[in-house]
Amino acid sequence: MTSALARFDPGRRAALEAVANLLIPSGDGMPSASEAGVAGRWLDEVLRLRPDFGPPLAAVLDGLIGTDPEVALARLRSTDPAGFGVLAEVVAGGYFLNPKVRSAINYPGQQSVAIVPEQPPDYEQDGLIASVIARGPIYRPTPGRKRDR
């Protein structure tokens, strides 16, 4: 277990689960944050990828333990935007690592899509660029020179 993961005992994970579900509840056929595993497997993965999130996340969660999650989350957002930012990035980052979530939102990742030259090019289709050209030049020329078109 890495040092970053060692910091996240069941108490902190429970605190994370509680606030994570307020950020991303279930609905519209989508799982909640905890159902998607953001306090379990995907927290481990987020911290493996972003060990720099470990210390600030631990500090945020320690402030949440034993409090009403809703009240504590509202207070965090208003008093510690940076801490809230780390919490939100961990929750959403973990959520979107889950392949089931990615599939459900039809997000396949940043795909490799070759540029296939069109004939005519898309900027020429439907008279798109011809309209711009017809409106003529819009720049102010260098003093002493005329517009050359």
Partner: peptide, 12 residues
């Protein structure tokens, strides 16, 4: 870019 962690790790 080709991997699922792209958005999470780009800022790192």
């Amino acid at each position: 870019a080709p991997f699922p962690d792209y958005e999470l790790t780009s800022g790192r």
